[in-house]
């Protein structure tokens, strides 16, 4: 997995709460059996005026000029500023894949849906929860100032504004450790293979009905 230590990037403010994963990547694009290539269809229904189809050249499609990511000033944004309950709905990991493929590295919101939050870390994407008041402030600044960038330091757990103002955020140690070092979760878990086997043997004794079915 790609490691994440520090990131400085242009901020795109998406002023809408409860953005669900259907909105982030609509279902017709879930038919792919790959992990990449979802970027052009990120926020498809909001971003384009026509209905998107898989395997289509999206560069030729009519853009919705009102959608934030279509505004020239937010081109190449890599930090998404969002509202509460971002990523709710379906568990599709295609949502972080699409955000990542588009070029986002950080998403900042007052709250995230659990599964989405979790999926981000598996893909080198950092979701940051900041207090609503702070997010409001960042929205105001990002909208007021063209070229507004934020610096995110995962080691120090801080978000730093262009004026040097710094906000701390929480992230659990295991996830932070894996992200900082680009560790593969499965590899880490398999270091405990013996422990898993021991547990499994006990369970086989205690609840034999859980084993052997389904074959």
């Amino acid at each position: 997995m790609r490691a994440f230590t520090q990131h400085k990037g242009l901020v795109a403010p998406m002023d809408r709460s409860n953005v669900d994963t259907d909105m982030i990547i609509p279902k017709q694009f879930l038919k792919s059996i790959k992990r990449t290539g979802f970027g052009p269809n990120l926020f498809d229904a909001l971003r384009y005026l026509d209905e998107g189809k898989p395997d289509q050249d999206s560069s030729q499609r009519p853009l919705n000029p009102d959608f934030v990511l279509n505004q020239p000033r937010y081109k190449n944004a890599s930090v998404l500023l969002a509202r509460s309950n971002f990523g709710c709905g379906s568990s599709r990991e295609h949502a972080p894949w699409a955000l990542d493929d588009y070029g986002f590295r950080v998403i900042i919101a007052p709250s995230f849906a659990d599964i989405f939050y979790n999926n981000c870390f598996k893909n080198g994407l950092l979701p940051i929860v900041l207090e609503e008041k702070i997010v409001d402030k960042l929205f105001r600044e990002a909208e007021a100032l063209e070229g507004y960038q934020l610096t995110v330091d995962l080691e120090a757990k801080t978000v730093i504004t262009p004026t040097g103002e710094s906000f701390g955020f929480e992230v659990d140690d295991f996830r932070r450790h894996c992200l900082l070092n680009g560790l593969d979760d499965i590899g880490v878990t398999l270091e405990d293979a013996e422990l898993i086997k021991t547990y499994e043997d006990q369970r086989r004794q205690a609840a034999p009905w859980l084993f052997g079915a389904g074959q």
Binding site: R35, S91, R92, E93, P96, I115, N118, N119, K122, N123, D185, I186, T189, L190, A193, I196, E200
Partner: peptide
């Protein structure tokens, strides 16, 4: 409900 990376994780580790 889990994401695809976790599907792989459970397939590989049962955890």
């Amino acid at each position: 409900g889990i994401g695809t990376s976790e599907v792989e994780h459970v397939l590989a580790t049962q955890c």
